[in-house]
Amino acid sequence: MVRKSTLFFAFLTTVVLALGLALGEARLRVRGELPYLRQEVMVVKTLQLTDLCLATEARHTRHPSQADWHSAFQSHPAALDHFPSGSIIPPPENVRRGYGPQAP
């Protein structure tokens, strides 16, 4: 009869190998996707883009880095932001720190 510890070690070796393979695959995929990433960089440069297209429902979530202070409350005075993605995208850096240019 096979000892329980032997079975456990066999299981452990399998999952460690699987995780190692996953990490190896991750490295290879990053290398393989470099041309696509370079293409993305070129797109950003050529089209002069500023933001990722993550949520298109409101302008302050489509272009968080370009939104003005009031865009989240645009509907009427004292209106709270009602776009769901507004609750998961924080106010941009310049809104939190003020409009003025800041020393890095």
């Binding site: 991750a26 990053v30 979530t61």
Partner: peptide, 13 residues
């Protein structure tokens, strides 16, 4: 969220 258009994520690991 409410986005009708959204990208298909191709996440680089």
């Amino acid at each position: 969220g409410w986005s009708v258009l959204y990208p298909r994520f191709r996440l680089t690991p």
